[in-house]
Amino acid sequence: MPEDQGVNGDMWTEQACRLLQKANWQKIGDSNIDILDTSGKARGLDALFSYEDGLTASLKRLVFVEAKSWATTSLSEKELKDWIDNLADKISSLRNSPGLLDTYQATKTLEISTGLIACYFNDPANYHSFRAKFEKWLQNHKLPYGHAERKYHQRVFVLDNGRLLWLASLLTSLRDWISSASLGEVRSLDFFYPSSNLHGNPVRRLRNINIEYIFSSLVLAKGTSVIDAANLTNEIDFAFYNGPLDEKSFERLASALQASNMIDARNELIIYKYRRETKDFRKIKPNVESLFKGLGAKSVSIKDMDNTDVMPGWVLNGE
C-alpha cells in the first residue's frame, strides 16, 4: 500500500491532531473511529474536532478530519478525487445519524458541514516540484453545481504541506511570544476576528483559529501583557502575513489592517512575515517600514516566522 499504513499512518494522525489541538480546536472522542451512518453502514474517520467559527456569532462547527501521510510519488489524481468525494459523502451521511449525534452528544449543538483532509507528503524534498501537479489535480476536480440557494453545502478543505507548515509556524510564533514573558509578566493571546458590518457580527476574540484563517494570507491576533507589580497592562497587535513581499502588496496589507481596527495609537504592532526576503525586498524595506510607521500605531516591527520544509519538533514529538 502506498499510504504509510499502521504505525506510521497512526503517528501522522496523532501529530495532525496535536497540531489542531494547539490551534485550540477541541477533539471529540478518540482517534480512528467507526461511526454508523443513516443507512447503518460503518464509516471510518481519523478524528472529530470542533471550533468556534468567529465570523458568525456563537456558531460552532464540527470538523471531520482525515489524516493522510503519503509520498508524492504514490498519490494519483483519482485517489485525491476519491478522498475529497468520500469525505463529502461521509459528512452528508453522518450528519443526521444517531451513530454520530447520540454517541457523541457534544456534536448535537454543532454545525455539521465541514471536512478537513490533512495531507502530509513525507518526502518534503520532492514537495516543491510536485506542488504544481497537485494544484492541477485539485483544480481539475469537477463538483456538482447548485442551481438554487440551499442552506446545506458540504465543505471539504485540503491542507497539504504548504498550509500545514504555515499553520505550524504561526503557532510556533505565538508560543514563543507567550513563553518569552519576563519575570512577573503574564502574556496571553487571542485570534482576532474583526466585525463585518454587512452581517452585523460583533468583533470576536477567540482562543481558536478558524478554518478560513488557515487558508488566508493574513491572520490577526491580539496579545495582552500584564505586569501586576507595576500595575501595567499592554495590548499588542499581531499580523501574520503569508503574501508577496512587494510594495503594492504591503500597501494592500496596510489597508487591510486599517480596515480591521488593527492600528491603535496605544498598541505596538508586530508584523510576522512568512515568506523569505529577496534582493528586491531589501531595496524596498525602508519604504515598507515607513509605510507602517505612518499608519499611526505606537510602534511597528517586522519579524520573520519560521519557514522550513519539515514539521517542527513539538508537532512530531509533543511537548
Binding site: 465570523l55 475529497i84 463529502a88 494544484e135 485539485l138 483544480q139 476536480h141 463538483l143 456538482p144 453545481y145 447548485g146 442551481h147 438554487a148 440557494e149 440551499r150 453545502h153 458540504q154 465543505r155 471539504v156 478543505f157 485540503v158 491542507l159 497539504d160 498550509r163 478560513e212 484563517y213 487558508f215 488566508s216 494570507s217 493574513l218 491572520v219 503569508n242 503574501g243 508577496p244 512587494d246 503594492k248 502588496s249 494592500r252 496589507l253 487591510a256
Partner: peptide, 30 residues
C-alpha cells in the same frame, strides 16, 4: 477555490463568492 484546497458542494456562484470573501487574500489573489 480548489487550487487553495477549498471544495464546496452544490454551491451557486454567489454562495461560493461569499465563502471565499471570508478569507484574507493577498495581492496576487486579488
Amino acid at each position: 477555490a480548489q487550487r487553495k484546497g477549498i471544495f464546496v458542494y452544490r454551491a451557486t456562484q454567489a454562495y461560493l463568492a461569499n465563502e471565499l470573501s471570508k478569507l484574507f487574500l493577498d495581492e496576487d489573489d486579488l
